[in-house]
Amino acid sequence: MLILGIETSCDETAAALVKDGRSLLSSVIHSQIPIHQPYGGVVPEIASRSHVERIDAVVEEALKRAGKSFEEIDGVAVTQGPGLIGPLLVGVSYAKGLAYALEKPLIAVHHLDGHVAANYLAFPELKPPFLALILSGGHSHFYDVVDYGDYRCLGGTRDDALGEAFDKVARILGLPYPGGPQVEKLAKKGQARYSLPKTMLEKGSLDFSFSGIKSAVKNLYDKLEPGQREKADMAASFQDMVFTIVKEKLAEALVQTSHNKVVIAGGVASNERLRHMMQDLNAKVFFPPLSICTDNGAMIAGAGYYQLQKGETAGLDLNAQAGLSL
């Protein structure tokens, strides 16, 4: 079964073709990073304008690279949310028109379900149930994945998402957008020698709070004279502290759920230091390959396949939802 996946929730216009939810035939991603760089972050109106300019060509390219025709597609999957409403509406509107014209099922996919499903593309042996930790610009949440597309939230951030905290620390340190990869790069040159607060919240809690750590970086930066600021050390200290917290919470979540498999997904999961630090957990740890770790159409097609298997299709009145819950 061949699914076309379309993703436009933020600053990537992406489309991909996936066979049977597991096999990636093509993936095309048009990144808007250079467009948003002058603004230090994603500007929703500018992102929306770029999506509508690119979507047609991106979808066509995905078909071409897979060597498939539109008639061979069995369904059109699209990110319904969460994300930026203007960008989401471009993908949803396009997918609705396309599915209608092709007389194929339309499938509305949750962006986070997509991030988890990216792992199905890389690991044939991975099947629910398992524990999932999603770390992205908008989310930092634990889920008990009971079945394909069936999630129970176990806890999540009470303030900043981890990716958001990375972006804010990047801004404090004067690094350009997108901040996450920049902090990671700088941290490689530094030592984690600054002491930052280890916010663990109540005993046994699977919630996170990252805003205090981010503020501590800001206070540290402001306190030091420009000549004394070891930015690389600050980046390394921040990164190691947040990942230490993530690791301890993850160990706790594994105990609480008795799972022996965990999927770590979302844009932050592309961080090499995170991947390294999670090696010795008491479970099999899955990280998606870097090529499908950040936003892409393949993960949406993958998740869409399992929804279609369950008969979960969307109607023509489908609307994008910025705050869609899982």
Partner: peptide, 21 residues
Amino acid sequence: SFTGIRIGLSTALGLSKGSGI
């Protein structure tokens, strides 16, 4: 309306791509 423009155009592009019209 910027958003309205994009809803109409995106839908038209999808319809056209899928139908060849």
